[in-house]
Amino acid sequence: MTKRRVAGAGSDVPPPAMPTDRVYEAVYAAVIDQRLPPGTRLREEELAQAFAVSRTVVRQALHQLAQDGIITLQPNRGARVPEPTRRDGEHVFDARRVVECEVVRRLAGKLSAAQLAELRALVAAEERATRSQNKQEAIRLSGRFHLELARLSGNPIFLRLLEELLPTTSLLMALYKAPGEPMCVAHSHRRLLAGLERDGAGAAATEMRRHLNEIERSLSQLASPAVPALRDVFSAYRGGGT
């Protein structure tokens, strides 16, 4: 499995060394950031032009993305961004509740001052992005907050599971969440942080469950996101070093 990063467009994380990794990471981040709407067709030729790589490199990246469940790849139909159903959403949030409630249960009362400060900085940045109506940045930071909690748990399996669940969550948001709303609500993240500062594992898990339930309940209407040109989508990631 390709190693993913807690990053997105505009990240200062160094780019992967291999061209296949570069394509993989950019497509993964574009799904998370909702720059690639559900149903978008990922044509090899367009991606090769967008990244100035061969179609062989693109094909390898698409196969890896399909193996990791980020895209679908079907004979005679090519690669597409998935279009998850409401039933898929139920499964995703069931899994997220299991993983993330356990993550915060383990972290409650055990985070250092430096770790809490880093998490507060993420939430503050998310709030600024939301106020400035920078949707993609708010979404990226929201996902990064959840991934950072999983990373701090010290269990790499938790982190990998959440990395696999977040793309489908973003696609569900794009399909079923009212336009203009962020992936999560930053004030909910602040409440989570308050719970984590206290040595109350049960309270932290309850707050995470409430938070995830709130997100799931917000998925109500079926939207039809516009499909952008791939060269426009990935210009953001080339500029950010992805």
Rank of each mutant, 00 (worst) to 15 (best):
R190Y: 13
L175W: 11
K177D: 03
H211C: 05
A201R: 15
A223F: 04
A194V: 04
S153P: 14
N155L: 04
G154N: 07
E164N: 15
F234V: 04
A223C: 05
H146N: 10
N155S: 13
A194C: 03
L161K: 13
F145A: 03
K177N: 03
R151M: 08
F158D: 15
L212K: 05
S153C: 07
G240C: 08
E148G: 02
T206V: 01
Q221N: 04
N155I: 09
L193C: 08
M183W: 14
E216V: 02
P225D: 06
L162N: 11
E197A: 03
L149E: 04
G200V: 01
A226K: 12
A229S: 10
R191F: 05
N155T: 10
P228E: 00
A204C: 11
R217W: 11
A203T: 03
T168K: 07
L147R: 14
A201K: 14
N155F: 05
Q221G: 00
T169R: 10
G202Y: 04
P179H: 10
E148C: 03
I215Q: 07
A236F: 13
G195K: 05
E207G: 05
L171Q: 15
T168Y: 02
G143Q: 08
R144G: 06
A205C: 11
A174I: 02
E197G: 02
L212H: 05
Y237A: 03
L230P: 07
H146P: 05
H189P: 00
G143P: 07
L161C: 12
S188R: 13
T206D: 15
E216W: 15
A203H: 10
E148Y: 04
F234R: 06
R209C: 01
T206G: 12
S188N: 14
L171W: 12
L172P: 14
C184W: 15
V227R: 15
R217G: 02
L152K: 12
L147C: 09
R217L: 04
S220M: 07
E214Y: 12
K177Q: 14
S170W: 05
G195T: 01
E148H: 11
H187N: 03
L222M: 06
P182L: 00
F158T: 06
R231N: 09
L193Y: 09
L165G: 07
E214F: 11
L219M: 03
S153E: 06
L230V: 03
F158N: 14
R190E: 06
L193Q: 04
G180A: 06
G240D: 09
L141N: 05
G202C: 02
G200C: 06
K177L: 04
R144T: 08
F158R: 15
